[in-house]
């Protein structure tokens, strides 16, 4: 997995990076929330591990911004903080975080929680793929959309930016215009 680590504090950053890399993932480091947001597009992270209290943009704000992007692929966000009270935990989860960890970081705990992240992301990918299984009529090639059957152009056009330019392929030309 690609893991984006956002922490203004060098000691934690080094430890988190070590645990992430030892677990076989790629780590990208940011020294505050704003930098993490800038790196987000380029790094395309699967997981974001963010400290809460950072200058510029806090971990919770970063999480809210990531959620607001409505990225197609799900980003797993965990907040790591030394504000280890229940209220903070609830606030972080309410802001859209998937997990909440207290500092000091325990390497064993972090690596176990990375496994959880991986498991959930794999399930998520599976769900997306299932949703991607389309029922298509073998004869007229219409696609099922809920109760109705619609033309492939309509179905795809509604869900993506693709537009259609109608033409004819050589074999259909042969079939429909045998004298052409």
């Amino acid at each position: 997995m690609n893991v984006l680590i956002a922490d203004d504090e060098a000691v934690s950053r080094l430890i988190v990076k070590k645990v992430v890399e030892d677990a076989g993932h790629r780590a990208v480091l940011a020294v505050n929330g704003a930098e993490a947001m800038l790196l987000f597009e380029r790094a395309q992270p699967d997981v974001v591990l963010a400290d809460w209290q950072m200058p510029e943009l806090s971990g919770v704000q970063l999480c809210q911004k990531i959620r607001a992007l409505r990225r197609q692929r799900y980003t797993y966000v965990a907040i790591i903080t030394s504000q280890d009270d229940k209220t903070s935990c609830i606030e972080a989860l309410d802001a859209g975080a998937d997990d909440f960890m207290s500092k000091p970081i325990t390497p064993g705990e972090l690596s176990a929680r990375l496994k959880v992240a991986k498991r959930i992301l794999e399930l998520q990918a599976e769900v997306t793929q299932m949703r991607g299984l389309l029922s298509i009529c073998s004869y007229c090639k219409k696609i099922r959309e809920g109760e109705a059957w619609v033309a492939v152009e309509q179905y795809v056009g509604k869900r993506s930016d693709a537009s259609f330019s109608h033409g004819i392929c050589p074999s259909c030309f042969q079939q429909h215009y045998p004298d052409g």
């Binding site: 060098a10 000691v11 950053r13 080094l14 430890i15 645990v19 030892d22 390497p107």
Partner: peptide
């Protein structure tokens, strides 16, 4: 706490690196 960090790496340079970062902090 140090023992836990030492457990992360056979190589002592990791602990040294952490300590150097702590001194800067």
């Amino acid at each position: 706490a140090i023992e836990a960090l030492r457990g992360l790496s056979e190589d002592a340079s990791f602990l040294r690196e952490i300590f150097a970062a702590f001194e800067c902090s």
